[in-house]
């Protein structure tokens, strides 16, 4: 381009600085950025190269150090939890997970992987005093070297976080959303990218696709899919994570969600007719007793009829034809 090596360096540093500024989610000086880009077509090319370089540098740190001699997280099974939930790999401190998905690039990392089957519960006590309670049908994983950065792959979990100003507790989903605690008890449901985050105490920041949304106690964020825009609403903070004490609270929730929550908590398949799936329900379902008893109480609450379906149930319209 006929540029001297010196001005080349200057441009590279300018571009690097802009890339650093713009990469901050709070960046707001877009007019100044546009003005800089307009000065010379070479600026945008230099900016793109700077972004590539930033990503390359970031990738240098995407490798965990060698496994710690003493594992940070310790798994302590609660008294009423059956012992079969203890995972040998987790007890050994470091589990290597052969990842099916590519978004985590787990193949070379020291991973702690925790999973529950539908109907199972499990408590993970972290070394820093934080606690994660996994509801049924849930999978989450974290790097042994970074136990305060949890990747939530599927399901529902209640996070009781020991706040540490220097090391925020972060829950990530595979679409790249980040939940950053501000000292907190919060519940997360992740169903194939559909996300519910409810805060019982403290506050949580949701960060995704350029937006940062602060959630305080009694706030709930609902995102219908990985690409949908999140919506904020109000819930009873006392009811957040109610599944732990044996009740499920719903506020204007689609029956599809109710059915999924029931399946996760009862450990039996619960399917719902398409005709009913979008209907809304507000109220509390008590999980007391055998699954049959729970489901028998649920049907009238939902204004629906219950049909046995193999191991589980089908929720159908009260006037629907018998199966």
């Amino acid at each position: 381009m006929g540029m001297s090596a010196e001005s080349d360096d200057l441009l590279r540093e300018d571009a690097r600085l802009w890339a650093i500024r713009v990469s901050d989610p709070a960046f707001a000086d877009w007019d100044a950025f546009a003005a800089w880009l307009e000065q010379d077509p070479a600026h945008n090319a230099a900016y793109e190269a700077a972004l590539d370089d930033l990503e390359g540098v970031d990738a240098l740190f995407d490798v965990p150090p060698a496994p710690l001699p003493s594992p940070a997280p310790a798994y302590v099974p609660p008294a009423r939890v059956p012992r079969r939930w203890r995972m040998p790999a987790a007890a050994a401190g470091v589990a290597l997970l052969a990842a099916g998905g590519s978004w985590l690039a787990l193949d070379h990392r020291a991973q702690q992987d925790y999973a529950t089957a539908p109907g199972e519960r499990r408590t993970v006590d972290l070394a820093d005093g934080s606690r994660i309670v996994l509801n049924g049908g849930t999978r989450l994983t974290f790097d042994a070297a970074r136990p305060r950065e949890i990747a939530m792959l599927q399901g529902e979990a209640l996070f009781e976080v020991r706040h540490d100003q220097a090391r925020p507790f972060v829950v990530t989903t595979k679409d790249g959303a980040r939940l950053v605690d501000v000292g907190t008890v919060f519940n997360v449901v992740n169903r194939d990218g559909a996300l519910d985050v409810a805060v019982a105490e403290g506050a949580v920041d949701y960060r995704g696709s350029g937006a940062v949304i602060r959630l305080a106690a009694g706030d709930m964020l609902t995102r219908a899919s990985a690409t949908a825009t999140p919506v904020k609403r109000t819930v009873d903070p006392g009811a957040v994570g109610g599944w732990r004490s044996g009740f499920l609270q719903f506020t204007d929730a689609p029956l599809r969600t109710v059915a999924e929550d029931l399946a996760r908590n009862l450990g039996k398949p619960v399917v719902i007719d398409d005709a009913l799936a979008a209907r809304r329900f507000s109220g509390t379902i008590v999980l007391d007793g055998a699954p049959d008893a729970v489901m028998a109480r649920v049907a009238p609450l939902l204004g629906a009829r219950l049909v046995r379906d193999g191991e589980g149930w089908r929720i159908t319209r009260p006037d629907g034809p018998p199966r």
Binding site: V22, P25, F27, A28, W30, L51, S209, G210, A211, V212, I213, A228, T229, P230, V231, K232
Partner: peptide
């Protein structure tokens, strides 16, 4: 196509979306 949501700075959100598209 996306439902409305609370945004601290809607204009910055638009620019961010534009930046993401270009990247």
């Amino acid at each position: 196509a996306t439902p409305s949501q609370p945004l601290a700075d809607p204009l910055a959100y638009l620019f961010r979306a534009a930046e993401n598209v270009m990247r």
